[in-house]
Amino acid sequence: MNVYPVGHYVGERHPEGHHLVRVGQTHQSMSEAEFGVWVLAHGVAGSPEWTVEDLLALAEKAELPDARAATDKLTGIGVLVAGNEVAFAQTHRLMPLLVGLGNSELHPDRFAVGLPGLPPVAVLDESGYELWQWGHLAPSLWHTCEVRAAVADEPVSAQDHLGGVLRDLRPVLAGGCGYLDVLSRAHQRLY
């Protein structure tokens, strides 16, 4: 079962040493170990599938204490999501971070994202770049699936596009060039 981190990191608070992540209109506080688990939940570049087991294996390598307990707690407060991917897509949206750096003559089908003047933090294929660039205009990831289904050459459903959207999502998260947020109450009423 894939795991996804939710929220936008807003920094560490001193003297408590807690990390804050904004989810919707609230802040969630995390200990150092919990924050480490949340960071690892972003996944690694080149791994479109990133499961709770992958996260826990990497946490063990990094010697993070009580990673299983932290994962359970973070799932309980909504900063980690693992499970029903349709429900996840219907209740979360992608928000972009950083700047689109475009493609190159050498690789016209690959698009860089990062900060001007620095090496890119992610290089996305056309589909992933489209999600990064336009995903925030959709009220949810599920809506993105519906749009992709509507413009497909063959009749397909939004469900048929879910796997592709989630695969496109991982390099955006792993590169730190976007974050997931919960839908606003107004958007939730639409679903």
Rank of each mutant, 00 (worst) to 15 (best):
12 E>N: 11
13 R>C: 10
16 E>V: 14
18 H>G: 08
25 Q>Y: 09
26 T>L: 11
27 H>K: 09
27 H>M: 11
38 W>F: 04
41 A>P: 03
43 G>R: 06
45 A>P: 08
54 D>G: 06
56 L>D: 02
60 E>V: 08
64 L>W: 01
67 A>T: 06
70 A>R: 06
71 T>N: 02
76 G>L: 00
79 V>W: 01
80 L>A: 01
83 G>L: 04
84 N>R: 09
87 A>W: 00
88 F>R: 01
93 R>N: 03
95 M>C: 14
95 M>E: 13
103 N>I: 06
103 N>T: 15
103 N>H: 14
104 S>K: 10
105 E>S: 14
108 P>L: 14
109 D>F: 12
113 V>H: 05
114 G>V: 04
114 G>N: 02
115 L>H: 05
118 L>F: 08
120 P>A: 15
124 L>E: 06
131 L>S: 03
133 Q>T: 12
140 S>L: 03
141 L>C: 07
143 H>N: 13
146 E>A: 10
153 D>S: 11
156 V>A: 07
158 A>L: 06
164 G>N: 12
167 R>H: 12
169 L>A: 06
171 P>K: 07
172 V>K: 03
174 A>W: 02
184 S>Q: 01
185 R>V: 12
188 Q>D: 09
188 Q>K: 11
188 Q>G: 02
190 L>Q: 14
